[in-house]
């Protein structure tokens, strides 16, 4: 059953996806040989079942009056509500950036960048009001990111003989 407004929104997203899968399934061949099922049968049946179950869940939420209920706020939270959202989106974006730069920049540089930016962003978002950023800690983080990415590169490429992307300069 749908419990909150954001839960209802997620139901709608899943419903849209199920609808899209169902529509795409109509383009699949519906003929089956020897009394068996066609290649379209499973995708059609499953996406229809998902849509029906999601609708039931939403109707139950409507009946119970929870369909448009607002999400519970955390009164004990010391950080503003937008901070976790920005943190979540920031980490997700950094992951996409990491994947995009992995092959063009090679493993070592892209990993060092990712580690540095990821930890720095979480640190900045979680610092207390008035807390200053010490330059020494930034340098330590940069050093940590560089050392870890080189060490992992060596362990994977030499130890496990796993091929990681490089830019071809000095083997990294």
């Amino acid at each position: 059953m749908v419990k909150t407004r954001s839960d209802a929104l997620f139901h709608l997203v899943l419903l849209a996806l199920a609808g899209w899968f169902l529509q795409e399934a109509w383009n699949l061949p519906a003929n089956a040989a020897g009394g068996s099922l066609s290649p379209a049968f499973f995708p059609r049946a499953i996406s229809s079942a998902i849509a029906i179950l999601l609708l039931i869940s939403m109707v139950r939420g409507l009946i119970a009056g929870t369909l448009l209920a607002s999400d519970a706020s955390d009164d004990a939270a010391t950080t503003p509500g937008w901070v976790p959202v920005v943190g979540w989106c920031g980490v997700a974006l950094l992951l996409v950036l990491y994947a995009t730069l992995l092959e063009p920049l090679g493993y070592v540089i892209s990993t060092a960048l990712f580690l540095f930016l990821c930890v720095a962003m979480v640190s900045v978002l979680s610092r207390q009001t008035g807390e200053r950023i010490a330059i020494g800690r930034v340098l330590m983080l940069a050093l940590f990111s560089a050392v870890v990415s080189v060490a992992i590169f060596l362990i994977f490429s030499v130890g496990f003989e796993i091929v990681l992307p490089t830019i071809g300069v000095m083997g990294v």
Partner: peptide, 13 residues
């Protein structure tokens, strides 16, 4: 925060 970044790195690699 270090642990989270390291785990994500291992996931990608």
């Amino acid at each position: 925060k270090l642990l989270m970044a390291l785990i994500l790195m291992f996931c990608v690699i």
